[in-house]
């Protein structure tokens, strides 16, 4: 099934830009989450003596 083809309006482009910015923020947040989690887990393992 094909959908009707329509040009993007300036409003569509503005919404797309805001979605892209939101996605960038989410991805950067994910990097931060993994970084902090790594530090937390690494810190716990070091304090616990690490793997035998």
């Amino acid at each position: 099934m094909t959908r009707p083809l329509e040009p993007f309006s300036p409003e569509d482009m503005a919404r797309r830009r805001r979605r892209n910015i939101a996605l960038a923020v989410v991805l950067l947040g994910l990097v931060g989450l993994f970084f902090i989690t790594t530090i937390v887990r690494l810190g716990g393992n070091v304090a616990g003596g690490g793997a035998p």
Binding site: L5, E6, P7, F8, R15, R16, R19, A22
Partner: peptide, 15 residues
């Protein structure tokens, strides 16, 4: 010409 670029419907949702 961006005014006549044809694209599929969709991509309309806001954040």
């Amino acid at each position: 010409n961006s005014a006549t670029l044809a694209t599929p419907a969709g991509g309309q949702g806001s954040v």
